[in-house]
């Protein structure tokens, strides 16, 4: 009999209050509760986290690196979105 495999989950960890959750890696688990416990055992054995997110890997949709140039093209020619684009006198303070 072929065994049914536990699905793959991506793990995101908030290392301390005030910081974003950050991708840590992946684990296998049968359900969400087990995914969180496995993520705790694998990725936070030394208090590396105060909060864990898990999401089944199949629900992650990623941009295609081959299309990066066209995907980011709209932002590519808009240097006026940056503060340094504007020419102001040195005497101007608090800005």
């Amino acid at each position: 009999m072929t065994e049914q495999q536990w699905p793959l989950w991506e793990v995101f960890i908030r290392s301390k209050q005030g910081l974003d959750h950050k991708h840590a890696g992946s684990i296998h688990a049968a359900d969400t509760a087990m995914a969180i416990e496995n993520a705790r055992d694998v990725y936070t054995r030394r208090m590396e986290g105060v909060s864990i997110w898990v999401v089944e890997s199949k629900y992650i949709h990623a941009s295609n690196p081959d299309e990066a140039s066209s995907l980011y093209d709209p932002a590519n020619d808009k240097i006026y979105r940056h503060p340094t684009f504007y020419d102001l006198p040195d005497e101007l303070k608090h800005m």
């Binding site: 495999q5 992946s26 684990i27 694998v42 990725y43 054995r45």
Partner: peptide, 22 residues
């Protein structure tokens, strides 16, 4: 326990290359 963890970090890295854990 760390060694189990290290094995799992690495399996997880290898899985991103398209091979399954199984």
């Amino acid at each position: 326990q760390d060694e189990a963890g290290h094995g799992l970090y690495l399996y997880s890295a290898a899985e991103t290359l398209g091979i399954s854990r199984e």
